[in-house]
Write a protein that binds this DNA or RNA. Structure first.
Lengths: 137, 137
DNA sequence: GGCTTTTTTGAATTTCCTTCTCAAAAACTT
DNA sequence: AAGTTTTTGAGAAGGAAATTCAAAAAAGCC
């Protein structure tokens, strides 16, 4: 089984998708990216967006985030970090705590498994939604 | 906006789905539960399984786990705990470390958000798959 | 126990997100 | 510039979960 190295070509579409994701700190869905870039590439297709997101993910240039609910979000921040998801507005925020490697060691001790990495997501209310819910009471 | 309390009736199907999940420490998909119980209820439909899983989740009797990949797993262990997913066999294991509340406090300090809970998942190779990959080298 | 009301079921259909197919277009190679 | 391989757009296909609706089952009531 020889793993043939996949060669990626440079296309305008791929470049723009990456630029859009990297230009933002929030997290975009394929659908959103499609709608945004449709203005520039009038013949863009959704399939192309999905294909490129997959390619960019394979190259390690973006992260795919899946918090359940059947929707994927794409994150341009690819250094280890965690996420916060607002239970009210569903927005996703980057949490800049460096990855806590000790957690992996602990699980390795407990289970004997080979622990490579972990994912950590926080849930609650973001500052805006927190204010809103306060006013309602 | 008055939230009407949903009344759940006791049905054989619902009871058996819950019993099956609670009787196991591994994590079951809707499809698996359907196939298992189809033997007992010959006219069972997949829709019924999905409907009941949703109801049981709402009642807090089971957890729905979604690790990306578009498939949900159901967990009968509903006290706070973490998970380990084997990157090779895709099996999900319960990790019995008590929830680390300090993480939530830290994020609250950092962001000002209201942090209710977190989810923590570890990835790597389980003992069986670790052995297999060793032998292959 | 019967009778009424409300929920649940099975079966099929529908929705939603994502992947795939394939001919035409674009990007690399030499 | 010609040949080779990848990528594109458009639409079809896939797959998990949700939904629809008439019939069946459960709970409430007398």
């Amino acid at each position: 089984m020889t793993t043939k190295k996949k060669i990626y070509r440079d296309t305008e579409q791929r470049k723009e998708i990456l630029d859009l994701i990297k230009s933002r700190t929030d997290h975009l869905t394929a659908e959103y990216i499609y709608k945004r870039l449709k203005k520039k590439f009038r013949r863009l297709s959704l399939g192309t967006v999905y294909r490129n997101l997959k390619a960019l993910k394979e190259k390690g240039l973006v992260w795919e985030l899946d918090f359940g609910g059947g929707l994927s979000y794409f994150d341009g921040l690819t250094s280890p970090h965690y996420h916060f998801i607002c239970n009210y507005c569903q927005k996703v925020f980057n949490i800049r705590i460096p990855a806590i490697k000790e957690l992996d060691y602990k699980v390795r001790e407990l289970t004997g498994f080979q622990v490579d990495f972990h994912r950590l997501e926080f849930f609650g209310l973001c500052d805006i939604c927190k204010e809103k819910s306060k006013r309602k009471k």
